[in-house]
Design a protein around this nucleic acid. Structure first.
Lengths: 197, 197
DNA sequence: GTCTATAGATAGATAGAC
DNA sequence: GTCTATCTATCTATAGAC
């Protein structure tokens, strides 16, 4: 393992600080001085590592998706051979929620800022989102073909509502209640079995 | 019916324009000039109708909740006497989604900007959100007590996931697919009956 | 009621020292 | 690599004319 260059370390600390501030105040309201202060440097120092505020913002948004996608894929691929499709979706769901609520700043910054990001940045990030969405799509098609999801279910709507329910937890989650795993299990129950007796 | 004063009309047009811009670019990135241009006046003219940009913002956020709440309550109260609790929740769900996706600007501006609004404004709007949430809470408690929702269901999680799934549609909805009513019906099916065979 | 003009503050970005 | 200094642009808000 190479020792990390000083510039790499600072770059990462700038990204962390940016994710934190973009999450708290949003992209437009966050100043480079806000970010630099968190890092312990001056605003001008950021320009050695990033070309512009926009480039820094785009990097944070992209990491927000990449972190979740990698975690979910790793978790699903780590399941034993005999896992059902429902098992895979359940694990994907739980990993998505855990990553969202625990490694919060990047993923939360993405969720909160995506809709109001400048167009070119939004377009660039949307590509990543779609690739992640395609991964979920495949999980669901496989489950439906195997008979674990009813044939009459609109898989696109199912996926969008499910991911939406999870992502919205960013708005209301407080760490003092149920554990994240329990929350994920309840969500899986709602969507697979429903709430009717 | 009183004829509307000119100032009332302009005030409303400023609110409409503000909701539109706050939805598109977010509160921080929207300038008073953006809003004034949409209305057809100058930025300084806004100050005759509103004390500050913040006050205008708060008004837009509040209307975002009020519009949905009033629509939902009216729809639920308009159900015939024999309606089941499931009927009520289903109608509330559909009305929430329709209002969200059709009278879009106020509700969407609320959803998109709430998390990054300045603290005092967020606190003020949160009160309204909680009152609306309490309305849903009551619908669900009644349904559970009547045996239409299983006793082991955590009603808070059920409500938060359901509202989250609906609100997130703001991110992906495009008017060229299924009708909003069909979308709402599918959502109700997912949550009440689940997707398993 | 809305305008013009402008005050006052702060932002992103660049140049050049160290 | 990070600093100081500064340029240029743009924003909210106010003052006063009409």
């Amino acid at each position: 393992m190479q020792p990390m260059k000083k510039s790499e370390v600072t770059k990462r600390r700038i990204l962390d600080a940016a994710a934190r501030m973009f999450r708290q105040k949003g992209y437009a309201a966050t100043t480079l001085t806000d970010i630099a202060t968190l890092v312990g440097i001056r605003a001008a120092g950021i320009y050695y590592h990033f070309e512009s505020k926009d480039e820094l913002f785009a990097a944070v948004l992209d990491m927000g998706i990449d972190l979740i996608f990698e975690a979910v894929r790793t978790a699903v691929e780590g399941l034993p051979k005999g896992a059902t499709h429902k098992d895979k979706i359940t694990v994907a769901l739980e990993t998505h929620l855990v990553t969202l609520l625990q490694h919060g700043d990047y993923t939360a910054a993405n969720i909160i800022n995506f809709a109001l990001a400048p167009k070119p940045i939004r377009a660039r990030n949307r590509e990543r989102r779609e690739i992640y969405g395609d991964y979920w799509k495949k999980l669901m098609i496989d489950a439906q073909e195997a008979g674990e999801i009813r044939k009459d279910v609109d898989l696109s709507l199912f996926r969008l509502y499910l991911i939406g329910a999870l992502n919205w937890s960013e708005e209301w989650y407080r760490p003092d209640g149920k554990s994240i795993s329990e929350m994920a299990a309840q969500c899986a129950t709602f969507f697979f079995e429903g709430v009717e007796p």
